[in-house]
């Protein structure tokens, strides 16, 4: 039964996630809330693993969620659910390729869909950031103790290295993910 539900959830994700890359993230975030199959912290780990391993991010994320939820059958079913709408839509479009690209309604629709997709990814990013940088489990503490300052410092350094330093900003994300993992161990980021 959970396999059927997995297929359906990922079919919807595959059908509505537009633009590739992290476009599936808002849908998975919503899935975490709706089903309780995984937490937002686990979702952030999945992004890291999906970015550091071969294969398209969306497919990696689907496999990961499927595996976490229902083992290997779950991984297979979630991935098939994600790609099923693509296969159907592309096989239909392949028949009238050029007229699809030049259709003004298709064009206008996607002009409006792209900012929508970016906004949804931004909201998912903020959700992850909220749980990473803030700890509101003890609201009686003064506000500056809610903030995880170690995490803020690491984020600031990464931001500078990935956006403004010419020599380092072209490096593959896997470099930053591994380095952050080591910093996390070195400075005891989880506090354990």
């Amino acid at each position: 039964m959970i396999l059927l539900q997995l297929f359906w959830e990922f079919f919807k994700t595959g059908l509505f996630a537009i633009g590739g890359g992290l476009a599936t993230l808002p849908f998975l975030s919503d899935m975490a809330d709706a089903t309780g199959w995984f937490t937002h912290a686990q979702l952030a780990d999945m992004v890291a693993v999906s970015e550091s391993t071969p294969g398209p991010i969306g497919v990696n994320m689907a496999t990961y969620v499927g595996f976490t939820t229902a083992g290997i059958p779950g991984a297979i079913i979630a991935t098939l659910g994600l790609i099923a709408p693509s296969i159907i839509v592309i096989l239909v479009i392949a028949k009238f390729l050029q007229s699809f690209r030049q259709n003004r309604f298709v064009n206008s629709t996607f002009i409006c869909l792209r900012p929508a997709s970016v906004a949804l990814i931004a909201v998912s990013g903020l959700t992850v950031a909220f749980s990473t940088f803030l700890d509101v489990s003890q609201p009686s503490l003064p506000w500056f103790q809610w903030v995880d300052w170690k995490a803020v410092v690491l984020a600031a350094i990464l931001l500078v290295l990935t956006r403004w330093i010419k020599q380092t900003k072209k490096l593959h994300p896997i470099v930053w993910i591994l380095a952050s993992g080591l910093v996390g161990i070195g400075f005891g980021f989880a506090g354990v």
Partner: peptide, 15 residues
Amino acid sequence: QNAFAGIRVCVCVLI
């Protein structure tokens, strides 16, 4: 756990 706590910070920057 510590490694993933660090990696989560990186994921925020990547997003």
